[in-house]
Design a protein around this nucleic acid. Structure first.
Length: 217
DNA sequence: AACACTGCCAACCGCCGGGAT
DNA sequence: TATCCCGGCGGTTGGCAGTGT
């Protein structure tokens, strides 16, 4: 279902005299991949310069992470992946990069897109699509209630290492999400994602068991 | 056939945190 | 300590493809 990039059709948008914007060409992809193969995916400004790309470092990074990086999984999101996204979103909110870290081969951008176009509608069919929102440069990164709760909870867990109240957002049909609490014997490891590989499915299993347990309760 | 609308996805924008100086 | 710079992140948008009328 994934669209193959049509370089000719996409290449005409967002043109600037300063730096290249818009869709990447096959040639740009090739140059970027070559430089990263030699210097590694870091120092993006340098990478952009070495590749001779008239692109900003950010753009190179994004292109690499979302498209050129090895082990990117192409194709539809499976039912298992969708289920996992839903569960992780319930726990983490719009922390797409964290969610993506639990789905090997999937990018945060892909998951975010999938959420916005599929899952958000599933959860709330009456919701207006986010598309064409009347905003340009408005308030960015609003701190969501849910995210705040999760973050504070994670801090709490780290600090106290004791049984804590964990906020878990649940959404009932047509309602605003509610935030019931439940107790868990959580420890650092459970919430600390920093040292784990994306392929660590054990964590996922633990989370799902944990999640199911407390949904039954 | 022509037009309008919707779905989808790549890519951009601006904010923020952290490291470097 | 203050400032600057860069990378990471999430929100948003542009534009093509597909579908409906």
């Amino acid at each position: 279902m994934k669209m193959e990039m049509n370089y000719e059709k996409m290449g005409k948008s967002r043109v600037s005299k300063e730096i290249n914007r818009g869709a990447w060409t096959a040639e740009e992809d090739r140059k970027l991949a070559e430089v990263i193969a030699v210097h590694g995916p870091k120092k993006w400004k340098t990478v952009a310069a070495k590749a001779g790309l008239n692109r900003c470092g950010k753009s190179c990074r994004l292109r690499w992470l979302n498209y050129l990086r090895p082990n990117i999984k192409r194709g539809n999101i499976t039912d298992q992946e969708e289920d996992l996204i839903l569960r992780l979103h319930r726990l983490l909110g719009n922390r797409w990069s964290l969610i993506a870290g639990r789905l090997p081969g999937r990018t945060d951008n892909e998951i975010k897109n999938y959420w916005n176009s599929h899952l958000s509608k599933k959860l709330d069919p009456n919701q207006k699509p986010p598309r064409r929102a009347a905003r340009k440069g408005g308030s960015r990164r609003p701190v969501e209630k849910e995210t705040q709760l999760v973050e504070s909870t994670r801090r709490e867990v780290r600090d106290q290492r004791t049984p804590v109240t964990v906020a878990a957002a649940t959404t009932s049909e047509g309602d605003e999400p509610s935030y019931p609490s439940f107790h868990c014997e959580a420890d650092d490891d459970f919430f600390d994602f920093s040292n784990e590989s994306a392929l660590n499915w054990e964590w996922v299993s633990r989370f799902i068991e944990f999640n199911q347990l407390h949904h039954q309760a």
